[in-house]
């Protein structure tokens, strides 16, 4: 039997195996940690209820598939002149389904020269990563992207 055929016969088992690597944490994150904070709460606290606008000025870079939920690279860049009259005041990064969705709140100034923030976050499972931007004119921009978290590899 060819290897390929052999695997085909294992089709059913394969599907079962396939669902295992992708963690679905939604059902498991019932236990609330000390800093539990939802995405809606977090947005509200920062924007004061103002609705953020989706914008292509916000470049959120995350992997589609994270090879390890403990270290997921996130980079946010915003098109902005970063002058005293027009700059990005803050970049917030959220892991929308973590116990505490807040990852980092960075307050920027025109002295940054460029509006960019990059770090690595832990994701407790497949979820959206979101970036909320506060502009100096009081407007809020937002971008979000889904990251599939896998338990991969061998140890």
């Amino acid at each position: 039997m060819q290897r390929r055929d052999f695997f085909k016969t294992l089709g059913t088992a394969a599907v079962v195996g396939a669902t295992i690597p992708v963690m679905s944490f939604a059902a498991e994150t019932k236990k609330k940690g000390p800093n539990a904070f939802t995405y809606e709460q977090a947005l509200d606290v920062i924007t004061g209820g103002k609705k953020p606008v989706k914008s292509d000025k916000v470049h959120l870079k995350v992997p589609e598939i994270a090879e390890n939920g403990a270290v997921v690279p996130v980079t946010v860049e915003v098109d902005s002149p970063m002058t005293d009259s027009d700059y990005v005041k803050a970049i917030h990064i959220f892991a929308t389904k973590n116990n505490n969705v807040r990852c980092i709140d960075a307050n920027l100034t025109p002295a940054n020269g460029k509006a960019m923030l990059s770090t690595r976050v832990k994701l407790g499972g497949t979820q959206d990563v979101a970036a909320l931007i506060e502009l100096s004119n009081g407007e809020f921009l937002i971008a979000a992207q889904s990251v599939k978290v896998t338990i991969g590899g061998c140890g």
Binding site: I104, G113, A115, L117, T119, K122
Partner: peptide, 17 residues
């Protein structure tokens, strides 16, 4: 920056100046 526990161990932060 205000940082929360969701940031990875041995964290790295990058910005411009």
């Amino acid at each position: 920056m205000t940082v929360w526990e969701s940031v990875s161990a041995n964290p790295v932060f990058t910005t411009y100046m």
